[in-house]
Amino acid sequence: MTDHETLQSLLDKADVRQYDCYQCGKCSGGCPMADAMDFGPRGIMRCAQVGSLGRILGSSTIWLCTGCYACVDRCPHDVNVPALIEEARYEAARRGIGRHDSDVLNKVFVTNLKIFGRSHEMILAGLYNLLALKPAQDVAALPHMLAKGMIGIKPNVIEGNDELAEMMQRACDWDKLEEKK
């Protein structure tokens, strides 16, 4: 597939028509993360309109979107930018051009889940800080939470965690199968 075809398939999957957008900026104007983004939601739509898949996949915008849906809700043409962003993240992951910190977090999170079945925040944050080389992040709150017994060392493991891990494997396989199709 050419980049142009790939972009079109992402748009189709997200049910977004790039030509619906007339660049009014109501999305970026209300986006809570706009200050930190390179393109913002309007910019992502602009990239789609001029056929620049590379800019979309390489942007910080797709990794900084919080999925709050304020943009879709206010869009006069109901353009579902978060859906396109979601598809763009999958495509970026397929090409191995994800954003480092997001990758680390998501992998730690899912591994954590596979082992315990529930999220263990201490292990999650600890491992993440270690792997993302941010040893000091949120550490200030740690003594308080330990002292008050809000977090502990012992993880909660669900009974069916083996079955859950298998199910998660099936889900990931399903995605790979879809890709081959």
């Binding site: 009014c24 109501k26 104007g29």
Partner: peptide, 21 residues
Amino acid sequence: RGRVSRIYKEGGRLICQGEDS
């Protein structure tokens, strides 16, 4: 150039939040 995304109150004034596209 941009459509105002929302208007809210802060400190007794109306904040018009939008994008200068």
